[in-house]
């Protein structure tokens, strides 16, 4: 099969075959990070710009490692919010990038749809590293790779996303990806953060965490942001922890094994208690390791996946 995409903007637009191809490709890439010389020359001469309009440590480092281990030349551009002139920046940035002849853009932006906007306007490959509340496709992929590593399959798994679903791009990418791969997906959290319209995306809504722990194979615990409390989505972090925080006590009461994922960075004592975060059933660091492999796979597949150009070259060969 051929990976015929020019951009990775979200998992909503991918087919199950394409997702499987990315996950399968990520597997051999894991080994490269285990080598003494953690580098292969496959993207030698490619220029990649990491355009981050939002602060990020984890995703940014993961992408940079992935790019460097594939021998690409990379530049990180962090655009602070205060210097973003409303409206102008994105278009001007796109034109500037074009002029610098770059091959790929990894973009994180606070506005949903910003990567798609960029993709329509430049020739380079565009990879969405998180846009607004919309999607964070590489996070969705690394979560799926981790689940597949642990369970050997995705089909039929019951995965529940817990927390601030409405504002979460991680949640949306997980929902699309897991649904396509045949998993059953649920969401759980305070109703102010879990709108009923999510049901139209084919997920089951659980109002109570206890029901989730009684049924789910795995839970993906989302980070709770302080500003949600400030905008009255729930009364306090303490109350959030009481009702939805993942604690050993709640897990013990459920009396069964539930695998625990967290996209990080964690708020210990809010959405997840420390003993759970460091416990036996979490795969949080495996997610981080898989993140690099998945991003390497995506970069590799996009770099080779230029159908128009490939056809052109094929005509000149032989």
């Amino acid at each position: 099969m051929q990976f015929n995409r020019k951009h990775l903007l979200g998992l909503e637009e991918l087919t199950a075959e394409e997702i499987r191809m990315i996950l399968d490709t990520a597997v051999p890439f894991k080994e490269i990070s285990e080598r003494q010389i953690k580098k292969v020359p496959v993207l030698r001469g490619k220029t990649i710009i990491n355009l981050f309009f939002e602060p990020s440590t984890r995703t940014r480092i993961s992408f940079e490692f992935a790019e460097k281990r594939l021998s690409a030349d990379t530049i990180h551009v962090g655009v602070s919010q205060s210097s973003v002139v409303k409206g102008e920046t994105l278009v001007d940035m796109a034109r500037n990038l074009e002029a610098m002849r770059i091959d790929m853009v990894v973009i994180r932006h606070p506005a949903s749809g910003a990567p798609a906007f960029l993709a329509e306007r430049i020739d380079s490959n565009v990879i969405n590293a998180g846009d607004g509340w919309h999607e964070h496709p590489t996070q969705g992929l690394l979560d799926m790779l981790t689940l597949r590593d642990e369970f050997g399959k995705l089909k039929g798994l019951k995965v529940v996303i817990v927390g601030d679903v409405v504002h979460s791009r991680v949640a949306r990418s997980n929902i699309w990806g897991l649904k396509k791969m045949g998993a059953k997906v649920g969401v759980c959290g305070p109703p102010t953060l879990v709108p009923r319209s999510l049901e139209a995306m084919g997920v089951e809504i659980y109002p109570r965490i206890e029901d989730v722990l009684a049924e789910a194979d795995a839970i993906n615990v989302l980070r709770i942001q302080l500003e949600r409390m400030q905008s009255n989505m729930f009364p306090s972090l303490g109350e959030y922890n009481r009702l939805y925080g993942i604690s050993t006590e709640k897990l013990e009461k459920a009396g069964r094994d539930v695998l625990i994922l967290h996209p990080g960075p964690m708020n210990r004592g809010v959405e997840i208690d420390s003993d759970v975060a460091d416990g036996d059933y979490q795969v949080i660091l495996k997610q981080v390791t898989n993140g690099v492999a998945v991003r390497m796979a995506v970069l590799f597949l996009l770099a080779g996946g230029k159908p128009a150009r490939a056809a052109e070259v094929a005509a000149t060969l032989e």
Partner: peptide, 12 residues
């Protein structure tokens, strides 16, 4: 508009 399209697109 608040609804399924907004939820999908990740727009308030």
């Amino acid at each position: 508009n608040e609804g399924i399209v907004a939820t999908r697109l990740g727009l308030p």
